[in-house]
Design a protein around this nucleic acid. Structure first.
Length: 280
DNA sequence: TTCCATGTTCCGCA
DNA sequence: TTGCGGAACATGGA
């Protein structure tokens, strides 16, 4: 589920519910999601308060009152849930912060592909992870975005999902952005002209901003997205919201892309029609 | 029972 | 050097 808009939603949830609360205990249900031994996580957190949140792409960073940071990565199935009543403890709760006031913050992650780390400095961590600028960073203007992409030799979809280029976009939102920009997912980035790249930039920002404003969107939030979006139509027998044609799928770069070929002609490979199939 | 899945990382190949 | 395909991770839903 988590791409930039979802992680932003988790960030706001944590900020609204958990900042300033004293962490009394840390309950570790499954240490697989930990990047450090459970005893060290507990030592790092017990008695501390979280003071500030940051997000960089899909990475959520939370500052502690001793200046260290908690770094949360959600994998495919991770999410955060603050609750008071023990009965609301989610089924796939892996790590839970138990606050002194009796409330809890659960890191839920069914497939256990998320990671929790404790780091000394957020900016150092972002550099170490080789993350590119956050896709909604105010400093990432059209010129900076175009410069990053102009040097790339991958396909448009692979480039959008490359976290070292720009951070925060995954499989679902890369499809959405390319659909709205009219660009074929297998278009070679180097074959796109300036106008295409400028539109790709504007579309990236618009799509992510709308998804953030609507509270996420790559899964449960999909039905909150505007009618013209492709994301809610990643399903059997789907019709393109623009032309009513069939949504097709394409497998490459290890992922399944959803697209509407007639609406996404820019950079389309000639062999496209042989390699796509109608969405299930 | 089999296939597939929103992410990340690693390996081997071109 | 860069990009890509495939596999692995672990689990559950269709």
């Amino acid at each position: 589920m988590p791409e930039l808009p979802d992680v932003e939603h988790f960030r706001r949830h944590l900020a609204e519910t958990s900042l300033g609360r004293s962490i009394e205990d840390v309950t570790i249900r499954n240490a697989k999601v930990l990047a450090l031994p459970g005893t060290r996580l507990r030592q790092a957190l017990q008695g501390r308060r979280m003071t500030r949140t940051r997000r960089h792409g899909k990475q959520l960073l939370v500052e502690l009152d001793d200046g260290r940071w908690l770094a949360l990565r959600f994998g495919m199935t991770g999410r955060l849930l603050h609750f008071k009543d023990a009965a609301d403890d989610p089924a796939y709760d892996r790590v839970r912060l138990d606050f002194a006031d009796g409330s809890h913050l659960a890191f839920e992650d069914r497939r256990q592909l998320g990671r929790i780390a404790v780091i000394a400095d957020a900016d150092d961590f972002i550099r170490q992870q080789k993350l590119g600028p956050d896709a909604l960073d105010s400093k990432l203007d059209a010129a900076a975005f175009t410069a990053l992409f102009a040097a790339n030799r991958a396909t448009a979809k692979a480039a959008l999902m490359d976290q070292t280029l720009v951070s925060g976009i995954g499989n679902i939102f890369s499809d959405e952005i390319l659909f709205q920009a009219g660009i074929h997912p297998q278009a070679q980035v180097k074959a796109l002209d300036r106008a295409d790249l400028a539109r790709l930039y504007r579309t990236t920002r618009k799509v992510l901003q709308i998804a953030v404003a609507r509270g996420g969107g790559s899964e449960e939030g999909a039905d909150k997205l505007p009618k013209g979006f492709l994301t809610p139509r990643r399903e059997a027998g789907a019709r393109c919201p623009h032309c009513r044609g069939r949504i097709e799928t394409l497998k490459f770069s290890g992922r399944t892309a959803y697209l509407c070929p007639p609406c996404q002609t820019i950079g389309a490979p000639r062999s496209r029609s042989r390699r796509t199939k109608a969405a299930r």
